[in-house]
Amino acid sequence: MSHHHINYIELAARDLAATEAFFTQVFNWQFTHYGPEYSAFSDSGLAGGFYKADLHAQASKGSALVVIYSDHLEATQTAVEQAGGKISKAIFDFPGGRRFHFIEPSGNELAVWSQQ
């Protein structure tokens, strides 16, 4: 039987430089550039990349929601805001933990969750 697992995700980014700076500042992701229209990230728990496009992912429009884990939810929310991210859903409880949603500089919606 074959083994299958998700190992890479790609997201659109209107402004690659701003998106890269945001994720570096807030989450300490590392980036590798593959030309002017693609930047791959690592040290995120799941490898992936951002490609230059005037599109963005919004869960309310049917996009998959990328969810990042944090041990310190409030501190991460503060870091998101200080780096220019916009909170789209304030911290809320759900079965198994708490989370918030945010919009990064290129318009993609992501979430951060914690068990605490």
Rank of each mutant, 00 (worst) to 15 (best):
A21E: 14
H33Q: 15
F27H: 05
P36S: 07
K52Y: 07
N28P: 07
F27M: 08
F31N: 01
A47Y: 05
L55W: 09
F50D: 14
D54L: 07
A53H: 13
A40W: 07
N28Q: 15
F31K: 03
Q30M: 02
D43L: 11
E20C: 13
N28C: 06
H33M: 08
V26Y: 03
F22N: 03
F41P: 01
F27A: 06
A21Q: 13
K52V: 00
S42F: 03
V26W: 09
T24A: 12
T24W: 03
A40Y: 06
D54C: 02
A47T: 07
S39P: 01
V26L: 09
A21K: 14
F22T: 12
L55T: 07
W29F: 10
F41N: 08
V26S: 08
G48F: 10
F41L: 11
S42Y: 01
K52T: 11
A47N: 07
T19N: 15
Q30I: 06
E37D: 15
G48Q: 08
S44T: 08
A21Y: 08
L46H: 00
G48V: 05
G48R: 02
Q30L: 07
E20F: 02
G35C: 08
D54N: 15
N28M: 02
E20L: 06
S42I: 01
Q25S: 15
T32G: 02
A40Q: 13
L46W: 00
S44K: 02
W29V: 00
L46S: 06
F31W: 02
T32Q: 04
S39T: 15
K52I: 03
F31C: 01
P36G: 07
H33I: 01
G35A: 08
A21G: 03
Y34H: 14
T24N: 11
Y38P: 00
P36E: 14
D43P: 00
F22M: 12
D43E: 12
L55G: 04
L46I: 13
D54S: 14
G35I: 13
